[in-house]
């Protein structure tokens, strides 16, 4: 193989989807356990706790988005897949913010969501506040998403 660029770039895309996906799977699962506990005691709270359960799921979607953009940029989904090793490494680096922040923020958001679910179980009128607590963590996943998107779309224009 003449260049390892495509290997690095694909590794980056895979990591973004993989790590953010793992984070979301752990997070949604954890929040799901809490939600099931609350619904066992009070089935009427299903709608409220479901929203909180879904919050840590967004990182997985962001990871998928980054992987998809990367794949289309490097020509895996069509076009020429001939990219230099340097560009491949840049794509890998560009995917890492979403990969790591996605993994970690999904798990931390799940902890906030679990606490929120337990708060709603005792005080349903505090639903809005419990959502805000969990949603605050989302900020950092969005920042990572933004940096990854900007980097990935910018790399194409570089002549290296």
């Amino acid at each position: 193989m003449e260049s390892l660029g495509i290997v690095f770039a694909l590794t980056g895309a895979a990591l973004a989807a993989l790590m953010a996906g793992i984070g979301s799977a752990i997070g949604v699962g954890m929040a799901g356990e809490a939600a099931a506990g609350v619904v066992t005691e009070d089935p009427n709270k299903f709608g409220k706790v479901l929203i909180l359960q879904l919050l840590p799921g967004t990182q997985g979607i962001y990871g998928l988005l980054i992987a998809f953009i990367t794949l289309s940029q490097i020509g895996i989904l069509g076009g020429s897949a001939d990219i230099s090793t340097a560009k491949g490494l840049l794509y890998l680096a560009a995917c890492l913010p979403m990969a790591f922040v996605g993994l970690w923020s999904a798990i931390r958001q799940a902890r906030a969501a679990v606490s929120g679910i337990q708060l709603v179980s005792k005080r349903p009128d505090q639903m809005g506040k419990s959502m805000i607590f969990a949603a605050m963590v989302e900020t950092y996943a969005i920042l990572a998403l933004l940096i990854s998107i900007l980097s990935i779309t910018g790399i194409g224009g570089l002549s290296i």
Binding site: M30, E33, E41, Q118
Partner: peptide, 16 residues
């Protein structure tokens, strides 16, 4: 070890 389900049920029971 985490007891998320059990703790959630217990917190829901606390109101009783």
């Amino acid at each position: 070890e985490q007891y998320t389900y059990a703790v959630s049920r217990i917190h829901a029971r606390e109101i009783d």
